[in-house]
């Protein structure tokens, strides 16, 4: 079936990605507006504000950079801190690489740019085949929302009513919960994975930088649960989780 992937199919995957990414776009709205607003009060120009969103595309790191710029921190220290915050994507991209179909390195290089926590979360929990077109769809709507709303936030300040701005801060967390729940219902193993990681992360964030805390908590939980389940499988000769990959 060498020619089964037609342009039509790629288009429809891209469109499905965009639809799946709409909730990210909603979630980014208040975060990007606030970023733009803070950038303006920090003294960045409109061009600098938009350029940072367009080239960096990393919410937490951009907020951090603004607070460091405000207190006059040097460029090198800001860049290094960005690296520490974003190192977690090393693990996320590795997991995406495991799930996504093989493709040309340039295509993967393009969607890699958009691999934020949210794009990762939506893509990696997709059921079945994960194509480059789908990931590109998710990433492009998320990216558009991020860049455009950063500019709007700069230009007109925190324009949303305070109440709405406040309640919209739940959006990205609600998205993560919505992505987790369907799998939680199907597999007990996933309940443990999420619970252990949440627990480890709560302890670790008190002692180390957030970027490292997420990476270590995630990996520790993924390994620990795998060990428990392979022991269980060895002892009882069964697993309730045999066809998770296809699920």
């Amino acid at each position: 079936m060498l020619f089964s992937r037609s342009i039509q199919e790629k288009k429809s995957d891209y469109f499905k990605g965009i639809v799946a990414g709409v909730s990210i776009a909603i979630g980014y709205l208040p975060v990007a507006l606030t970023y733009g607003f803070i950038a303006e009060t920090t003294g960045l120009s409109l061009l600098e504000t938009i350029a940072m969103s367009a080239f960096v595309f990393a919410g937490a790191a951009q907020y951090m950079s603004l607070s460091l710029i405000a207190v006059g921190t040097g460029a090198l220290e800001i860049i290094f801190t960005t690296f520490i915050i974003n190192i977690r994507h090393l693990l996320m991209s590795t997991a995406i690489n495991e799930k996504a179909v093989k493709d040309h390195p340039i295509i993967k290089g393009i969607y890699a740019f958009g691999m934020t926590d949210e794009v990762f979360a939506v893509s990696s929990t997709k059921e079945g085949r994960l194509t480059s077109s789908y990931i590109l769809g998710v990433a492009s709507i998320a990216y558009s929302s991020w860049v455009i709303n950063s500019g709007i936030g700069y230009a007109i300040g925190s324009s949303l009513p305070a109440t709405l701005q406040q309640s919209m801060s739940i959006a990205l967390y609600a998205l993560f919960i919505a992505l987790l729940v369907p799998s939680l219902k199907k597999h007990r193993k996933i309940v443990w994975l999420a619970t252990f990681a949440a627990l480890f992360n709560s302890i670790l964030t008190m002692v180390i930088a957030t970027g490292w805390a997420i990476i270590i908590a995630t990996l520790a939980s993924a390994i620990l649960v795998e060990i428990i389940y392979s022991k269980k499988q060895y002892l009882y000769g069964q697993s309730d989780d045999q066809n998770r990959k296809g699920a």
Binding site: S124, Y173, F176, A197, S202, L219
Partner: peptide, 28 residues
């Protein structure tokens, strides 16, 4: 096998404890 576990573990870590601190009022 471990990498296939990563998305679900990562979601757990991304949600908690961050969700408690989105506003000063923890109930939010």
């Amino acid at each position: 096998a471990v990498l296939q576990n990563v998305p679900y573990a990562a979601l757990g870590a991304l949600i908690f404890p961050g969700i408690l601190f989105i506003q000063d009022d923890i109930w939010f």
